[in-house]
Amino acid sequence: MSKYLIRRVLQLVVVSFVISVLAFLLVHLLPGDPSTIILGPNDTAANRATLLKQLGLNDPLWQQYLTWLGAVFHGNLGTSYLNHESVTHILATGAPVDLELIIISQTIAFSVAVPLALLVSRRPNRPLDNVATTSTFGMLALPPFVVAPILVAIFAVGLGWFPATGYVPFTQNPATNIHDMILPSVAITAGSIAVYFRLLRSDLISTLQQDFITMARSKGLSGRRIMWRHAFRPSSFSLLAAAGINIGALIAGTFVVELLFAIPGIGYSLVLAVNQRDYLVVQGIALVVAIAYVTIQFIIDFIFTIVDPRVVRE
């Protein structure tokens, strides 16, 4: 492993530590006394003291943190105040939904945006380019909560190709699961397509002005080969950076479509928990989401080392 990646791993560890401290402190910022919540307002002071001792809440903060962290490492993130479901269970059922949404929507986004940008940037400002650029501009202006009802109206209510709502776990029935997930995924894809297409298009156009492209032409390479082999990689840096940020934002950021299509992702659970002040659920989800975000950035950095060999050396 290169020095660059070792540095990135260390960063990952440090950031994760900071995140865990912040998530831990979240619960300590709560107003009120846990004993009051658990025992009710009318219990005796002695009982409360016993409970606090039992719960380890008289220990110094750093010790409480370590105890909590130990539990986290054993998969114990506490239990919801409301329905007494374990936070780990909420995450285990919700996370696959978000993961699937992200994978499907990003696969669609890349497979539309990349070929389109490669096609259009060879002849910029021609009719095809103008259509693509204008329509992606429109897509940027359409948030998922606008796209989703339109998709439902056309493909679910009108044509009846997809269900309007509903969710079956992948492990239960993969075909139905994917069928159910297509509309919600498409609903969050529009913005990604627009961003990816526009970034790649403008970077490709400037890359195609470079000497090394003329050089590649003077070798006798075909236009298609030049686009894929010579122009695409050096034009993909901002695309990659944007993809990292975008995918990060989609983790637990898809609650609108989860709500509209009634699919049980962690985004939906998180919003619910925040509304109902279900602090341990908020804490657990925040921790996992933040660490997932950092991990995605790490993966993007890793891909950078493959795409641009200069990164490793600088």
Partner: peptide, 8 residues
Amino acid sequence: MTALNPVK
């Protein structure tokens, strides 16, 4: 400096 592809 510019006529060789930087990433190949």
